[in-house]
Simulated assay, not measured.
Amino acid sequence: TEGKYATDEKIPSESELSELYHVSRITVRRAVEELCSEGYLVKKQGKGTYVSQPKVIRKITQDKDVMGFSEACRACGMEPGAQVVNILRCPARSDEVRFLGLPPQSDVIFLQRVRTADGEPIMLENNFFPYEPFKGLLTAYEDLTNASLFDYLESRYGRRPESTVSCTLEIVRASSEQASYLSVITGDPMFYMNAYFLDGEGKPLVIGRQYIVGSRFVFNI
């Protein structure tokens, strides 16, 4: 915690720490276990214990206090980034039609970006907007590169995600495509967050389906 060991650096063994700080190995073991449980350290089988990478902390429940990825990164002392993967017009699925209040056979704008913290990929962001009011997004590649989506929506459209009517979180395993975008191994555990966002007037705005690297993210209530 004092910056003596850098991220991904291996710390000394229990016996070395015991001698270094003149405490028992049991005390050292308990301290290491506590730091592992809090996410500061990670044990790698057959290799030792290493300093973990910093984690982004974000709330699960988002009622009138929605925090975007960029804001969450900066609150944790990290610099957010975004690379646009796709901006497409595609047919709306049934839940998108229902939530966004669209006529049958409508289209949506699919915006996909890789979000980074201090240059490290953290999240594959998949957002779905009603086509007609947001068709300008199709030409917003540059505007949405290394930018806050929430801030962009507010400046361009005068609307910002303010709350969710539903937000679910589950554990999934990375597909080969997701793994390639997020620099993880296929099959690695990830968070999958599915959220339905309302604007400040309580009107449906966007559906977010995000795949998040589990080792780099912490959710709290």
Rank of each mutant, 00 (worst) to 15 (best):
N194D: 07
P121E: 03
L182V: 03
T186F: 04
S180I: 02
E154C: 13
Q105C: 12
E125Y: 09
P121C: 09
T168I: 12
D199V: 13
N194W: 07
K135N: 09
D151M: 03
F129Y: 12
V108C: 03
P130T: 15
Y131M: 10
D199H: 13
P189Q: 06
D143H: 10
E132Q: 14
A195G: 06
L144A: 05
V114I: 12
L124R: 03
K135V: 05
T139S: 11
F197V: 10
F129G: 04
S175L: 09
R160D: 02
G187F: 11
P130Y: 14
R156W: 05
Y141Q: 11
G158N: 07
D143Y: 08
D143I: 04
Y192T: 06
I109R: 05
D151C: 03
R173H: 15
Y141P: 06
D151I: 04
R159G: 09
I109F: 09
S183W: 01
Y152A: 11
E120T: 15
I109A: 04
R173Q: 15
P133M: 09
Q105D: 12
I171P: 00
C167D: 05
A195P: 03
T186Q: 13
M193C: 06
Y192A: 08
C167S: 13
N194E: 08
G158A: 10
R173A: 15
L138N: 08
D107N: 14
D118I: 06
L182M: 01
E132K: 15
G158M: 12
P104W: 12
A117L: 06
T116W: 00
A195S: 14
G158L: 11
F150C: 06
P104N: 14
T168S: 11
E154P: 03
A174Q: 00
V108A: 06
D188C: 05
F128P: 04
S163M: 10
L124F: 08
T164N: 09
L149V: 14
E142K: 15
R156M: 12
L144T: 12
E120Y: 06
F150G: 02
D199P: 11
D199F: 14
S175P: 01
Y152T: 11
Y152N: 09
S175I: 05
Y157V: 03
V114R: 00
A147T: 00
E132A: 15
N146C: 11
I122E: 01
L111W: 00
V165I: 15
S106K: 07
L153N: 01
S180D: 02
S176P: 01
G136T: 11
V165M: 10
Q105E: 08
L124Q: 02
V184W: 00
K135D: 05
T168R: 12
E170R: 11
N146T: 10
Y141H: 11
S176T: 14
S166Y: 08
Y181I: 04
M193V: 13
L111E: 00
R115D: 01
P104F: 14
D118S: 10
E132Y: 12
L198A: 10
P189V: 09
G136D: 08
T116A: 03
K135S: 14
Y192M: 10
I171N: 04
D199T: 13
R159Q: 13
L182F: 02
